[in-house]
Computed example of a mutant assay.
Amino acid sequence: MNLTKTLRANILSLAALVALSGAAIGAEAAPAKKEDKTDKPAAAPAKQEEKNVAPLDPAAVVVKVNGVAITRAEVDRAKKVLMSQNRMTQPVTPDIAQKVEEAAVSQLIAKELLYQAGRKQEIKDLDKQIQERVSQSKARFPSQEEYLKTLKSMDMTEKDVETFAREDLVINNLIEKDVVAKTTVSDEEAKKFYNDNIDKFKRDETVKASHILIKVEPNASADDKKKAKEKAEAILKQVKGGADFAEVAKKESGCPSAPQGGDLGFFGKGQMVPPFEKAAFAMKPGEVSDVVETQFGYHIIKLTDKRPAETVKFEETKDRIVQFLKQQKVQEGINEYVENLKKAAKIEMAK
């Protein structure tokens, strides 16, 4: 896992690359239905007000960082990405709008400071890496048309994508060398976290099962259901007669798990539909169920393993704890690094 990429997500202009990796702004914001209900009563007045507000000059300088200008266009684009990431929809209250503005400006300042510091370090084949990154972004779209459409929705050009790729690589290199490489987590720290958060490591009972599904469409006739059930019962007879369960599943099952011999892996309560869950958790490893009916059709279930409820041992989860704590430390390290850069920088806000 790339710690820098995970933790640098809060550096706003680089987040534009996330959107370009396959999720358009509109799609990102669409799920925010709960916010829609809250905001709808204020929607009409807000839109009326917008008509009376003159648009701000996109080229206007909002802030200068060591002489480098950050424009209104950059801030507005950053705000759009921020709102998308946080599932926020327009219109927002003046108070929220102000907070989004401040967050966008703050993150763009941080980005620019890190980029300026990172440019002092040599990166081998940087231009080649930039073109590879841009090509990877384009490849995630079904067509050039969709790619350009997403760029337009974010008020970006292809040149902007190259710029963001350059910034991303330069900042990534800086943080890897100056923060990540110097960050460690001791066994004692990991063990303390485990002991202090022992409730987080409790695991409910889980089972591992395979199944053969004879699918029944929701609008199937009574005759179709009868035929499907008869087929399931015939297959059950084969399995109980000694036929290899996995091979029969590969041949007969209508579930996407068929190529894996019907293997569903481990699952806990609440993850499967009730009739399936009830049958699976009532079985012992090695047992095969009778035909079980659900809304998907008729199932034959084979339980292959069962894990009782337990507390996960420290040794089993140690690596994940270390990774989590390192992420926290790196984030703190990035914040401290940026604060130190700010102390030595000349940051001029436009009046």
Results as ranks from 00 to 15, higher is better:
2 N>R: 03
3 L>H: 01
3 L>D: 00
5 K>E: 06
7 L>W: 01
7 L>Q: 07
10 N>W: 00
11 I>A: 05
11 I>C: 00
11 I>Q: 00
12 L>G: 09
12 L>I: 11
15 A>D: 10
15 A>T: 05
15 A>F: 01
16 A>Q: 13
16 A>L: 11
17 L>D: 04
20 L>W: 14
22 G>I: 06
22 G>F: 11
23 A>S: 13
24 A>E: 04
25 I>E: 06
26 G>A: 04
27 A>V: 09
28 E>D: 09
28 E>R: 13
30 A>E: 12
32 A>S: 15
33 K>P: 08
33 K>Q: 08
33 K>F: 15
34 K>M: 15
36 D>W: 15
36 D>Y: 12
38 T>Q: 13
39 D>T: 15
40 K>M: 15
43 A>S: 12
45 P>S: 00
45 P>G: 06
46 A>S: 07
46 A>G: 01
46 A>H: 01
48 Q>L: 13
49 E>W: 01
52 N>D: 05
52 N>M: 03
53 V>L: 12
54 A>E: 14
54 A>S: 14
55 P>A: 11
56 L>E: 05
56 L>D: 08
56 L>W: 05
60 A>R: 09
60 A>K: 11
61 V>W: 04
62 V>H: 01
62 V>C: 05
65 V>D: 08
66 N>E: 00
67 G>H: 04
69 A>W: 10
72 R>A: 12
72 R>V: 11
73 A>F: 09
74 E>V: 13
75 V>F: 03
75 V>H: 03
77 R>A: 15
77 R>N: 08
78 A>M: 07
79 K>C: 12
80 K>A: 06
82 L>T: 04
82 L>I: 06
83 M>V: 07
83 M>G: 06
84 S>K: 03
85 Q>H: 11
85 Q>L: 09
89 T>M: 07
89 T>C: 02
90 Q>N: 09
92 V>F: 14
93 T>I: 09
94 P>E: 08
94 P>L: 10
94 P>F: 15
95 D>V: 15
95 D>R: 14
95 D>C: 01
95 D>L: 12
95 D>H: 08
96 I>T: 15
96 I>G: 05
96 I>H: 04
97 A>M: 04
98 Q>F: 13
100 V>N: 03
100 V>K: 06
102 E>A: 08
102 E>C: 00
103 A>H: 00
103 A>K: 12
103 A>W: 00
104 A>M: 07
104 A>E: 11
105 V>W: 02
105 V>K: 05
106 S>R: 04
107 Q>Y: 02
108 L>W: 04
109 I>F: 08
110 A>N: 11
111 K>Y: 03
111 K>P: 01
111 K>G: 11
112 E>V: 07
113 L>C: 04
118 G>P: 00
120 K>G: 06
120 K>T: 13
